[in-house]
């Protein structure tokens, strides 16, 4: 099966430094937030691990977020298929 594995399965992709600097200097908009999603693809042939860029994540700000929206989001592969073999999948408590 395909599954999200481990505590790092969904993490923030930090924004590019130049975009962050412009925002922090008051010269640009807040950079859009994206997630890196690590999916173990047991159904692939051969099985592998794929990372996806998911976002932008909208509707959240400095005050926290309970109403995140992915209305305009896309899912883009960040690796070539098979680049990370199944044996290198993230540690999962249920593996033991």
């Amino acid at each position: 099966v395909d599954f999200l594995s481990g505590t790092s399965a969904v993490e923030l992709i930090e924004p590019p430094k130049d975009v962050a600097q412009r925002f922090l200097n008051g010269d640009g908009p807040a950079p859009p937030r994206f997630a890196r999603v690590t999916l173990v693809r047991g159904s692939a042939d051969p099985p592998d691990v794929m990372e996806y860029k998911v976002g932008p994540i909208l509707g959240c700000g400095t005050a926290g977020c309970d109403t995140a929206s992915l209305e305009t989001a896309t899912i883009e592969p960040m690796l070539a298929p098979g680049a990370v073999p199944f044996q290198k999948r993230p540690y999962e408590l249920s593996d033991v």
């Binding site: 599954f3 999200l4 969904v10 999916l39 998911v54 994540i57 959240c60 995140a68 899912i75």
Partner: peptide, 27 residues
């Protein structure tokens, strides 16, 4: 905030979105 990790709300929204687009994915 721009470097903060994803909030629980954001994480849930991402997981829900992935499962919507890829129904076979298990969490």
């Amino acid at each position: 905030w721009i470097f903060d990790s994803l909030s629980p709300g954001e994480t849930k929204a991402v997981v829900d979105f992935v499962k919507l687009k890829m129904p076979a994915v298990e969490t």
